[in-house]
Design a protein around this nucleic acid. Structure first.
Length: 568
RNA sequence: GCGCCCGUAGCUCAGGUGGAUAGAGCAUCGGAUUUCUAAUCCGACGGUCCCAGGUUCGAGUCCUGGCGGGCGCGCCA
C-alpha cells in the first residue's frame, strides 16, 4: 500500500462522476498544503458541461458520496481531497520502514540494461574540478537506475588515445630525463606537455616527431613508443583511483579509447559497406546533410590515415550494442559536445541501425572560473584533489568548533567536506553552467550537502537518546496524532515518484531538490515539536515519523553518493 | 554568418503533463537555545518571471520574432 492507493481511489470515483476515462482525471498537488493532499481543477470541464468551474466543483463535492479515508471539499473552482491523517501516516510510515533501503526504488527496470558512460578523464593530465561533473552526475544516475531495478554498466571511457599522445611520447623522448616521473607523475607529464606546445611553435621537427609517434602507436607495433604510452597510462590511472575512492565511485568497466583500437578497421569497413562514406579533401567522411542541411560531415579517417575521436566512439557504440543490447545508453558528457553526439547518432541512423535512438547525450553545463574558461595548458585550473582537501579541512575546522568531542572527527570531516562538494555539483539542473567559486563550495549552511547530513545526524541523535532511555513501545503509537506532520508524510510518500522521474529525465538534481524540501520541513517541525518526554502514544508515533524521515534522507544521500553520518 | 543551449528577487537557484496568492537559500535587518545537535528554526526586506506579439477561460510554463549571455561549426578530444 502506498500513497498511490489513495490517488487511484479518488481518480476512480471522479471518473465515475464525470464520465472521463480514469487516466484523464488529472490530479495535482495543491500549492498550499493546508488546502489538502490532492486537487482536481474543474476548469477543463466547464466547456463540455456548460457550467462555471466553481459550480462544477460544488456539484461534484455534493455527489462524491463516501470515499474511505479520503475527504473531498470544493474550494472555488477546485475539488480538494484530504487523506485521513491516521491512514496517511500508517501507509507512508509502514511502506518506508518495511522497505528500508529499498524504499523509493521499484522493479521497472527488471530485465533491462542501461549503459552509462561517465567521468572519462584524459590521462597524463590532472583531474580538474571540471571532471567532477561527469563523474558525480554519472555515478548518481547509476545508483538511481540500480534502485529502479535496471542492470547497469558504468563505463569509464578513458581518453588514452589520440594525437596528443604522439606529442607526449615525443616530449618524453626529448626531455624525459629532466623530470621526475615517479613521485608526481601527472604533474611531470603536464610540464612536458606544456613545454611541447611552447617549443612546437619554433621547432617544426617536433610536430613531425609527434605525428610519427602516433602513427606508430596506431600501427600496433610493440616498440618503444607503445611502452612509453603504456607507462603513462598506468601512472595516470593510479592517481585517478585515489580520487575515485574519495568520491566513492566505482566502475564496472574501465575501457580507454585504446580498447577499441582492434575494432577500428572493422568499424570503418562496416560503415563503408553500408555505403554512406565518401572521400572529401583526402579524408574519409560520412555526409549528414540528408538528416540536417546544417550538419557538418563526420570524419572517420584523416588524410594521413589515422582515426579520430568519432571513429573510436562509433566503434565503442557498436561494441556496446553487441555486448549489452541496452535499453538506454547514456553519455554523461559536457554540452559542448552536442554536435559530436548528433553526428554519431546520425552516422548510425544512416547505417539503418535504429537502436541509435536509445543513445542519449546526458549533457551538462560548463564549469568555468570567474576569470573564464578553465585551461590546463594556461595554468588556469583548479585541481579536484585540492577542492576535496580544502572542503574536508573546512569541515574539520567546523567540527572542532561545534562538536569538539566527536569521535572519528577526521573520518566525518572527510564525509561532510566531500559531501558538500558533491551535493553542490548535483544541486542545480545539470544543463546550467556553473561558475566555480571557492566560497560557495566551502559553505555548509543553507541549501548544502552538510545541511542534509546534519538533519540526518539530528534525527539519529533522537533515536539514540530514545534507545538509551529504555526504548519506546511502538505498538502503542497513535499515528492519527501525526496530523501536524502531514506535509512531511506526504513528502515521504512521494519519494518513489521522485526517483522514477529522476531516472526518466536522467536528472539527479530532482533528488537534491527533494531532499532539501524534505529537510526544510523536518527541521521546521523539529523546532516546534518534541519527540521524547510527551505522552507515550504520541511519543511513539513521533518516533516512527523520525525513523521514517531518517530512512528516506539516508536513501537519498546514498543515491547521490554522500555519506549519511549518525553524528557530526 | 549558421546551429544548439540558457535568461525567474541584489547573488545562486526551485517552479511534473499550461491552473489557486510565483517559492527557497545566500546577503541585509530583527528574533529564538535551563529540555531530542543553533551546520538549526521564526520573522522582515526583496519580483516589468529579458522584451514584443500570438494561442487559450487561464501563460514563468506553449508558438513566432527580437535582445543578452554561453557553447559549437572537417582532419583536437
Amino acid at each position: 500500500m502506498s500513497l498511490q492507493t489513495f490517488v487511484d481511489r479518488v481518480r476512480a470515483r471522479l471518473a465515475e462522476l464525470t464520465g472521463l476515462p480514469p487516466e484523464e482525471v488529472r490530479l495535482e498537488t495543491p500549492r498550499d498544503a493546508s488546502l489538502g493532499d490532492l486537487a482536481f481543477p474543474c476548469f477543463p470541464l466547464a466547456r463540455s458541461m456548460r457550467q462555471a468551474p466553481p459550480k462544477i466543483a460544488a456539484d461534484l463535492a455534493e455527489r462524491l458520496g463516501d470515499l474511505p479515508e479520503v475527504e473531498g471539499r470544493a474550494v472555488g473552482p477546485y475539488l480538494n481531497f484530504t487523506i485521513d491523517r491516521g491512514a496517511l501516516a500508517r501507509t507512508v510510515v509502514g511502506a518506508v520502514l518495511e522497505q528500508g533501503e529499498a524504499y523509493g526504488g521499484s522493479d521497472e527496470g527488471a530485465g533491462k540494461t542501461i549503459v552509462i558512460d561517465l567521468s572519462s578523464p584524459n590521462i597524463a593530465k590532472p583531474m580538474s574540478v571540471g571532471h567532477l561533473r561527469s563523474t558525480v552526475i554519472g555515478a548518481a544516475l547509476q545508483r538511481i537506475f540500480d534502485a529502479l531495478g535496471y542492470r547497469t554498466v558504468g563505463i569509464n571511457h578513458i581518453g588514452d588515445w589520440g594525437s596528443q599522445f604522439g606529442k607526449l611520447v615525443a616530449a618524453i623522448d626529448r626531455w624525459g630525463d629532466t623530470v621526475d616521473l615517479e613521485s608526481d607523475p601527472i604533474k611531470a607529464l603536464l610540464a612536458l606537455y606544456v613545454r611541447y606546445h611552447e617549443e612546437e611553435a619554433n621547432d617544426h621537427s617536433l610536430e613531425e616527431e609527434a605525428r610519427a609517434a602516433f602513427r606508430e602507436l596506431e600501427s600496433g607495433e610493440e616498440g618503444e613508443v607503445r611502452r612509453t604510452w603504456r607507462r603513462i597510462t598506468e601512472l595516470s590511472l593510479r592517481e585517478f583511483d585515489k580520487l575515485y575512492e574519495r568520491l566513492n565511485v566505482r566502475f564496472d568497466e574501465v575501457r580507454g579509447e585504446s580498447f577499441y583500437e582492434p575494432y577500428l578497421d572493422s568499424t570503418v569497413e562496416r560503415i563503408q559497406a553500408a555505403g554512406v562514406t565518401k572521400v572529401s579533401e583526402g579524408a574519409l567522411v560520412v555526409d549528414l546533410t540528408s538528416l540536417d542541411p546544417n550538419m557538418p560531415p563526420c570524419l572517420l579517417r584523416k588524410s594521413d590515415g589515422t582515426t579520430l575521436y568519432a571513429t573510436r566512439d562509433l566503434a565503442a557504440a557498436l561494441h556496446r550494442w553487441e555486448l549489452y543490447e541496452f535499453h538506454r545508453a547514456l553519455y554523461v558528457v559536457g554540452g559542448e559536445q552536442r554536435l559530436h553526439f548528433r553526428q554519431l547518432k546520425g552516422v548510425l541512423h544512416r547505417m539503418g541501425l535504429d537502436w541509435e535512438s536509445r543513445m542519449e547525450h546526458v549533457d551538462f553545463g560548463m564549469l568555468r572560473l570567474p576569470e573564464g574558461k578553465m585551461s590546463t595548458r594556461k595554468g588556469r585550473v583548479v585541481f579536484l584533489d585540492d577542492v576535496l582537501d580544502r572542503a574536508a579541512e573546512e569541515a574539520r575546522r567546523i567540527i572542532a568548533e561545534k562538536n569538539p568531542d566527536l569521535a572519528d572527527a577526521d573520518a566525518i570531516a572527510e564525509q561532510v567536506g566531500i559531501g558538500a562538494v558533491i551535493f553542490n555539483d548535483l544541486k542545480r539542473e545539470r544543463i546550467k553552467d556553473v561558475e566555480f567559486v571557492w566560497e560557495e563550495v566551502l559553505t555548509f549552511e543553507g541549501e548544502t550537502g552538510p545541511y542534509v547530513q546534519y538533519t540526518h545526524a539530528r534525527l539519529a541523535s533522537i533515536l539514540r537518546k530514545a534507545a538509551a532511555e529504555g526504548g519506546v513501545d511502538e505498538g502503542a503509537a497513535d499515528l492519527a496524532r501525526l496530523a501536524d506532520a502531514a506535509p512531511i508524510l506526504a513528502r515521504l510518500g512521494r519519494f518513489p515518484d521522485v526517483l522514477r522521474s529522476a531516472g526518466e529525465h536522467a536528472e539527479p538534481s530532482e533528488i537534491t531538490q527533494y531532499l532539501l524540501a524534505l529537510c526544510r520541513e523536518v527541521n521546521s517541525w523539529y523546532a516546534e515539536h518534541r519527540v521524547l518526554g510527551v505522552e507515550a502514544p504520541l511519543s511513539a508515533a513521533r518516533l516512527l515519523l523520525i525513523r521514517a524521515s531518517k530512512s528516506v534522507v539516508a536513501n537519498g544521500l546514498r543515491l547521490l553518493g554522500l555519506a549519511a553520518p549518525e553524528e557530526m
